[in-house]
Simulated scan of single mutants.
Amino acid sequence: MAHETFLKEIGGKSVVEQIVDNITNAIINGELKPGDKIPTENELCASMGVGRNSVREAIKILGAYGVINIKRAEGTFVTQDYDSKMLFPVLYGIILQKDSANQIVELRKIIDVGILQLVIEKLDSESLYKVEQAMKDLETKITTFNVKAKDIFEADIAFHMVLVDITQNALLEGICFYVDQITRTSRMKAIEKFLTEDATEQFLLMHKEMLRVLKEKNKNEINKVVENHYQYWEKVNS
């Protein structure tokens, strides 16, 4: 392979960032494929005209994000399987955005619409039973005397993760896990709002509506159901 083909200068960025971008772009473009050995330090230094320290720093960053795998005595290889660490830079970018709270709500809506579409396509009797059990667990928690917001939150996450599991999509699973982590505080506030306003029945109804759409395999109602599902969360972020 002619490694020089993807090692191009990218203006306006540090040397380390250029190296990171060049290697990731090569993977995206298919010039480097999963399992491929990347150029050696000497090759990277020579082809880009950069120092060894910059190359080593870039390799550390790519390794930390799970993009490459360093094997002692063998070399450095493009990771062959999905690694949840690959989502870190994306999620950090979202968190650091101005007005990130509202953007995260919008992101989660889009994700949920896609999840429900996939679930409808893959739903069978066994997976439907799992969703119904998760719904029963959520209802049990909500109707418990003096229930805590934390308990409802955990049952809510469990319900949604059952849906994610049905999609059999590791990337979606990773994204949803980290979105749940970074939205914990605002979603807890939304659930506390339900409790304060004695509106837990409404909270439960929104989940039942989601289950109904799945059972009926009604893709036309997905957007409406998701919009209703996040109305309280939007209020606490406004």
Score class of each variant (00 low, 15 high):
residue 142 I to R: 08
residue 93 G to I: 13
residue 66 G to K: 00
residue 186 S to A: 13
residue 76 T to H: 01
residue 114 G to H: 04
residue 49 G to M: 03
residue 11 G to L: 14
residue 233 W to A: 13
residue 95 I to Y: 13
residue 52 R to M: 06
residue 170 A to S: 12
residue 72 R to M: 03
residue 172 L to W: 02
residue 89 P to G: 02
residue 131 V to L: 10
residue 52 R to S: 10
residue 189 K to L: 14
residue 204 L to W: 04
residue 151 D to C: 04
residue 5 T to M: 09
residue 202 Q to E: 14
residue 10 I to P: 04
residue 110 I to R: 03
residue 222 I to A: 00
residue 113 V to Q: 15
residue 200 T to Q: 08
residue 229 H to F: 13
residue 120 I to P: 04
residue 158 A to C: 07
residue 127 S to F: 08
residue 183 T to N: 09
residue 152 I to R: 01
residue 143 T to H: 10
residue 101 A to I: 11
residue 18 Q to F: 05
residue 28 I to R: 15
residue 222 I to V: 10
residue 209 E to V: 03
residue 237 N to L: 13
residue 38 I to L: 01
residue 194 F to Y: 15
residue 99 D to G: 07
residue 141 K to T: 15
residue 221 E to Q: 11
residue 71 K to N: 03
residue 111 I to A: 13
residue 41 E to H: 09
residue 137 D to C: 07
residue 123 L to S: 05
residue 220 N to D: 14
residue 188 M to E: 11
residue 113 V to F: 07
residue 172 L to C: 02
residue 37 K to C: 03
residue 174 G to P: 07
residue 173 E to W: 14
residue 189 K to N: 14
residue 14 S to Y: 07
residue 77 F to I: 05
residue 23 I to D: 01
residue 194 F to E: 12
residue 193 K to M: 14
residue 126 E to Y: 12
residue 89 P to V: 01
residue 191 I to T: 06
residue 130 K to S: 10
residue 10 I to R: 08
residue 207 H to C: 04
residue 192 E to W: 11
residue 129 Y to E: 15
residue 221 E to G: 02
residue 170 A to Q: 07
residue 116 L to P: 01
residue 9 E to M: 09
residue 2 A to G: 12
residue 122 K to I: 06
residue 161 M to T: 15
residue 191 I to K: 10
residue 67 V to E: 08
residue 61 I to L: 09
residue 83 D to S: 11
residue 157 I to T: 07
residue 171 L to D: 06
residue 125 S to G: 02
residue 84 S to I: 15
residue 63 G to R: 06
residue 116 L to M: 09
residue 214 L to R: 00
residue 154 E to P: 00
residue 210 M to P: 00
residue 67 V to K: 06
residue 73 A to N: 14
residue 113 V to R: 10
residue 218 N to L: 06
residue 204 L to P: 09
residue 201 E to C: 02
residue 215 K to L: 03
residue 231 Q to S: 09
residue 118 L to W: 01
residue 45 C to N: 07
residue 93 G to E: 07
residue 183 T to F: 03
residue 168 Q to R: 07
residue 113 V to H: 10
residue 185 T to L: 11
residue 147 V to S: 01
residue 65 Y to M: 06
residue 8 K to Q: 15
residue 86 M to W: 04
residue 21 D to Y: 11
residue 154 E to T: 08
residue 111 I to S: 08
